[in-house]
Each structure stands twice: as C-alpha cells, then as structure tokens.
C-alpha cells in the first residue's frame, strides 16, 4: 500500500469516527435510519404528544425518516404483523443505533401506584450486599438503600408534570 493510499484511508477512517452517531444525538435528517427503543412506540398522526396514535411499533424496529419538523420525525416502518406503518415520533424516542436490550421489567422499579413505594425499589443485588458486608461498608449499603427508596418516590407522573410545565421532551414548544 502506498503512503498516499494509507494517508487517504486514515483520513477517511478519522472522518468516519468523528461523525459516528452518539446516543441521544439531537438531529436526524430525511433518509436516516432510526430504531425504536421502548417496548412500544406510538406513531402519531401529528408532531404533537397530544395527537392520536395511528400505529405502534415494538422494540428495536428499524424506521426510515421521511420528514423532519423541529425535533419530530415522520417515520415509516413495519409493525409486529409486518404491515407498513407510518407516523410522527419525537426524536428522543428513537435511537441512532439499534438498542441491544429491551427495557427489562425484572430490573425496573414497579409503578409506585401499584404498591408501597419503598418496597417497590429494586434492592441491591446479593453480590453487592455481600461486597458491602466484606468491606465493612454497612453504612454505605444503608445509604444506597435509602437512596433507592427516595428514587422510587419519583413517579412517571412527576416526570410528565415537570416536562409539561417546563416544556421538555415531547412537550417542547
């Protein structure tokens, strides 16, 4: 390989790395491919969180961006039955790379409304508890347990209320 060719390949590789999409990337363009990242993603009739859902797609479904409007994307893809579906989705609800694992119900906090919130927090794993015990870190373990209980007190309703009030996420003006 000639030095010039090597240099050219290096430059192309460097550019490819520099432009590699990051998680949470803010901007997508028409023609991009994106992936759904929640168990169920609604494709809406209009670019608004209050619009009706005209279809849903499952986890890690590939979608083609047909149009953009601010942070909203009009996408086209296939639903679980293989039927072609289309609609609007907030860009924060899709990923620029295929997600590896679905939202894991076994590891997530149970809805606070369903049960006692303190009991709802996923406890430390047994391995971590044993680690704390072996390290004589009982106070730290108790602190993390307190933190987990406090975290569980913040509900999805709290998040939505903040987002609506402060124009965040799908609720941006």
């Amino acid at each position: 390989m000639t030095p010039h060719r090597l240099l050219l390949i290096s430059i192309i590789a460097a550019l490819a790395c520099a432009t590699a999409p990051l998680a949470g990337a803010a901007e997508f363009s028409k023609g991009d491919k994106v992936w759904s990242k929640n168990v169920e993603t609604a494709l809406l009739a209009e670019p608004s969180p209050l619009a009706a859902a005209q279809a849903t797609v499952g986890f890690a479904e590939k979608l083609a961006v047909k149009e953009t409007q601010g942070k909203w994307l009009r996408v086209k893809g296939d639903d679980a039955k293989g039927d072609e579906v289309e609609g609007w989705v907030f860009s924060g609800n899709v990923a620029s790379e295929k997600p590896k694992l679905p939202p894991a119900a076994g590891f997530t906090t149970v809805e606070a409304s369903e049960t006692n919130t303190v009991a709802a927090a996923r406890p430390l794993t047994p391995a971590a508890e044993q680690y704390a015990q072996n390290q004589g870190a009982g106070n730290a373990q108790a602190d993390v347990t307190w933190l987990d209980a406090e975290s569980a007190l913040v509900t999805q309703q709290d998040l939505t209320a903040y987002m609506v009030e402060n124009s965040k996420g799908e609720y941006q003006q």
Binding site: A23, K37, P99, K100, P102
Partner: peptide, 14 residues
C-alpha cells in the same frame, strides 16, 4: 427525564 431519551432503556436509572 434526561435518561428517558438515552439509548439504553434497559436500566433502572437512579
């Protein structure tokens, strides 16, 4: 709120 828009939704963010 931020973590809702991260790629990884398999985690219980705290």
């Amino acid at each position: 709120i931020l973590a809702q828009y991260a790629t990884r939704q398999d985690l219980d963010w705290r």
